[in-house]
């Protein structure tokens, strides 16, 4: 760590501010544009997929609500870690920092579960004539899925099990959704690694203290940023995605 990390030293820069912190804010501003372009791409292609599945067929709002809550709580534990550090309470800082890492990893676990669930999704369609489920999905099924349905029903089965999963290659919704949430997940992963490295670094004598808190401050800013991006994704992608009027 450089000498500029010592926050008790007056910042001898043209702005009088720490350059690393200024750079972090500039980076966060530019990352806003990055995510904005991904969100805009998701929105402009929304409802333009030729085949299903669509958001309403896959999203589970209760599950995503829990993961959203987990990420919000991780922001709280992060700021409490930072607050403890600035008050010189290193042990309390470590507890809150480790809590943040655990909550971040829990959020990633939810995302992995969700991605896997979307990929292996399957629908059960009754083989009776004019089956309501078939009529509902008729426009969303691809030709191969329709052939599979007919094939299974021709074998005198009561119902057919059709693969209705989604990968980034399935349709426009799949591509835009996985790219957006995948990049967010990558940001969270980087954040978890960063926080974990700070946790171990704090055991080095004098490396992290009330006077030398800039490293933690920068990591905290980054962590809160991934939280605010998710706040927007949750509303725009998930809630608006399932709402048919949007």
């Amino acid at each position: 760590m450089s000498d500029s990390n010592n926050d008790s030293i007056h910042e001898d820069t043209t702005t009088g501010l720490n350059n690393r912190k200024l750079l972090m804010w500039a980076f966060l501003g530019s990352d806003c544009m990055f995510f904005a372009s991904l969100i805009a791409t998701y929105l402009v292609y929304k409802g333009k997929s030729v085949t299903g599945p669509n958001p309403i067929d896959l999203f589970s709002i209760p599950v995503t609500s829990v993961s959203t809550f987990v990420l919000l709580m991780s922001s709280m534990s992060m700021v409490l870690a930072y607050s403890a550090l600035t008050r010189g309470r290193l042990k309390v800082f470590r507890v809150w920092l480790l809590s943040t890492v655990i909550l971040g990893m829990t959020f990633l676990g939810f995302q992995v579960f969700e991605f896997r669930d979307f990929t292996v999704n399957e629908v059960k369609i009754s083989c009776e004539q004019n089956s309501p489920k078939y009529l509902e999905l008729e426009n969303k099924l691809s030709n191969s899925q329709k052939s599979e349905y007919k094939k299974q029903c021709s074998e005198n089965l009561e119902s057919a099990h059709i693969e209705f999963g989604m990968t980034p290659r399935t349709n426009l919704f799949g591509t835009t959704f996985f790219v957006l949430t995948g990049f967010h997940g990558a940001h969270v992963t980087i954040g978890v690694i960063w926080l974990l490295s700070l946790y171990f670094y704090s055991f080095k004598r004098g490396a992290v203290s009330a006077e030398r808190h800039l490293d933690v401050d920068l990591a905290a800013l980054y962590w809160h940023f991934v939280d605010i991006v998710w706040i927007i994704i949750f509303t725009v992608v998930y809630l608006f995605g399932v709402y048919e009027g949007f």
Binding site: T15, L17, K21, L22, W25, A26, L28, G29, S30, D31, C32, M33, F35, A36, S37, I39, A40, T41, L43, V44
Partner: peptide, 22 residues
Amino acid sequence: KIFTIMFLTGLILATAIVFALM
């Protein structure tokens, strides 16, 4: 305020990107 300006500049441009693309 400089931090606010740095962040808001990016945020305003980001919002403009969303509406421009839409």
